[in-house]
């Protein structure tokens, strides 16, 4: 799981829609990638990012991105650090915890397992759907 993926993720529980992010990240093992910095890509994803999630993860990796302002998008050094965090850091082992319901999702071999157990699905989804 790359950090950009983490930035798009949320808890799968129906009760957490709109509240289940950013998922708290616990990292046991990380793999560093060496994809070449793509400035246009980074500028174009800039407006789509959830900065709360990025700040949270950056702090965990002791990465100081500096103050994030509207002008950061023109700062190539900032964009490069951002790109490296989002696309060149891959969490191989660890876990994600929902900030709303505290459900823990494991990450193993780089793959987050976001499946709910059968009783969780029917406990959470059915009553809400019946209300609609």
């Amino acid at each position: 799981m790359k950090i950009l993926t983490h930035n798009m993720m949320a808890c799968t529980k129906r009760q957490c829609v709109g509240r289940g992010f950013p998922l708290l990240l616990e990292v046991k093992d990380v793999s560093k990638l060496e994809q070449e910095f793509n400035v246009e890509f980074t500028k174009n994803i800039f407006p789509k990012l959830d900065w709360k999630g990025i700040t949270m993860v950056a702090a965990q990796f002791n990465l100081n991105l500096g103050p994030i302002t509207e002008k950061s998008i023109e700062d190539e050094e900032f964009l490069k650090n951002l790109y490296n965090l989002l696309c060149n850091v891959k969490v191989m082992t660890g876990q994600l915890t929902c900030p709303n319901c505290q459900r823990v999702y494991p990450i193993d071999q780089g793959i987050p397992n976001m499946l709910l157990k059968e009783d969780e699905i029917y406990q959470d989804i059915q009553p809400e759907q019946q209300q609609q």
Binding site: M1, T5, T12, K13, R14, I111, P112, N113, M114, L115, L116, I121, I125
Partner: peptide, 8 residues
């Protein structure tokens, strides 16, 4: 890639 249910 991640493991997830298409319905949730």
């Amino acid at each position: 890639s991640l493991v997830a249910d298409g319905l949730i």
